[in-house]
Structures are given as C-alpha cells and as structure tokens.
Design a protein around this nucleic acid. Sequence first.
DNA 1: AACTAAGTGAAGT
DNA 2: ACTTCACTTAGTT
Length: 118
Amino acid sequence: MPVTRKKELRRVPTDFEFRVYGAANLIPRGRVVTYKMLAERVGCGSCRAVGQALKRNPFSPGVPCHRVIASDLSIGGFMGSYSSGVLERKRKMLAREGVVFSGGKLFQKKRIYKFSGR
DNA sequence: AACTAAGTGAAGT
DNA sequence: ACTTCACTTAGTT
C-alpha cells in the first residue's frame, strides 16, 4: 500500500487553521495572548473555534500554542486536556520564557501580548 | 448534527 | 472578594 495515512488525523490544515496558526506564530517569546484576542485577530467571533484549531495544531513545537491562555488569565488548557500533568507542562514551558503563573492565574498582566496593527 | 484548549454572568461561600 | 456552576456563543468538523 502506497500510503499509510491514518484517516483524517493528518489532513491538510484548512484555511481557518492556517489563519490561527499564523496569528499564534506572531506571539513573541515571553508573551501570551488569550483565546479571545486570537479569535479577534483572525476575525473569528468564537474563541472555541480557535481552541479547536490549536488543538489540532500540526506544527506543535513550531507554533507556540502554549502561549495562548484563557481570558480570565488562567492557564487554560493544553493539547485538548485540562489534566494537571499536561497543564503543568504548559506552565513550565511558559515559566521558562519568563511567564509566571501564581494561584493559577497570570502573575503579570504585562506579559499579555497585544496584537499590533489591524 | 455534534463537538469544542472559551466567555460570561449569576449565585454561593 | 474569591470560587464554582450552568448557560450561551460562534465556528469547525
């Protein structure tokens, strides 16, 4: 068999997904954005849609999906899970970039990256 | 039609 | 003031 593709797991990202990944890719190291902001940036009125796209992120290490947090400054989810372990990993990654969480919330608001232009 | 890595508001503590 | 719960929203698959 020529192709060992696993159904839709490796399907080509849709236009919408590319938009989301592109926006996420603009987030500098040491900064974070909220799902809502990302949603607005990609012209999407639904933060959930963004979450779905990030979840299926094919550029896992490339696109900094771990720099996207919830609007209430809580860490949100990661890889489709809210498990302590996974979230812990996310927190650690962010901490390594200087983004510190305290009490489950972002410590410094100034770490929030504001999308500039348009 | 069903799902979602969210957001918001309300209520309780 | 902070935490928890339930409902709603908009968009994707």
